[in-house]
Each structure stands twice: as structure tokens, then as C-alpha cells.
Amino acid sequence: MSTLLAAAGPLEPAARSYLSPTGQEVVFLLVGVLVLGAAVVSVTTRRLVHAALWLVVALGGLAVEFLLLTAEFVAWVQVLVYLGSVIVLVLFGLMLTRAPIGRSPDADSGNRPAALAVGLASAATLVTLVVDAFRSSWIDLSGAAGTTRVTGEYLFSHWVLPFEALSVLLLAALIGAIVLSRTQGGRARPRAGKLRTAPTKPKER
């Protein structure tokens, strides 16, 4: 661990201080406030479609943070995969489950105070821990660590096997999603199970 820390770059507390943030830190802070605000609105709003759209703001802001941390390729993958496909999937899911367009009063469940307590407790604990642990750690942002060229080199020299395993996983997920969402004969057929508490047949659409 100590060699790892030594390799992380020299610490120059004299030249660096909280009181004189660099331009990158200021931009990171502003975009971070935007991301956090969008995330909070996204988990608290009562309009379901608006929640998905605020999630777009949060994830796009995170892509900007990745760019600021010099991880270019990851940032563009984030934009393509999250903003391009995941949000579209979520919006389609909201539409297919007939989510109300307007304000839905039952968006939050009854354990909201408990959830708030757990969230605040975890935030307080982890912020204290993280600030205490990394008080004197600085990231050296010089040099291109995440360009597409560098990413391709390490991905296809050191990480080939996980990469291929991941493609098999994606194929399995694709087949699984198709099998799960297929309907036989145009209607959803419940399979025989052990559930005896509901002696009713699901209504036809």
C-alpha cells in the first residue's frame, strides 16, 4: 500500500490548497452541484417522466465529470450507453406500464422517513470517512490517461478475456430479455406456480 501511495505522485501541500482552487476544480464543483441537484430532483419528483428526464441531466453531467478527469473514452461511452439507450429503455418502460403523465400521488412509498434517515446517515458517515481519508491526496491530471488510443491498447492487451466474457454476458442478457418478454398467442400466460393466495385469473388486456 505504501508503494502504491508513493507511486501516486508527490504531495506538495505548499503549492496546493483548498483556498486556491484551480479552474478544473471550480468547473468540477459547479458541474457536481448540477449533477447532485438533478439526482435529488430525480428521486423526489412526483412526475415519473420528469424523473427520467432529470436522470438524463445527472448522467450527462457525470459524463462531463469524466471528461474533467481525463477519461475521454469512458465519458463518450457514458453518453452513448446511458443517455442513448438506458434512458430510452426507462422511458419505454414507463410508457408500457402506463405511468401517469402528470403528478402521481403514490410515487413514494410509506417508508419515506426511514429512507431519508438511512440516506442521510450513510451520506454523513461516508463523507466524514472520505474527507478524513483523502485530505492530503491530489490527482495529477497532466498527461492523457484515457484517450481512445490508450483505452484500446489496455483493453485489448490486458483485459481481452473479461471483455470477451462480457460479450457473452450481453448475448445472454439479450436472449433472456427476449424470452422473458415474449408472449405466447398474443397474451401473457402465467406459468403454473405454487402461489395459491390469489384464486383469480389475470384479466385479459
Binding site: E25, F28, E65, L69, V131, F134
Partner: peptide, 8 residues
Amino acid sequence: MHLAYPAV
């Protein structure tokens, strides 16, 4: 950049 910003 200070590491605390992204971590927090």
C-alpha cells in the same frame, strides 16, 4: 485536482 471532490 483534490481527490476529495470526486470522492465526496
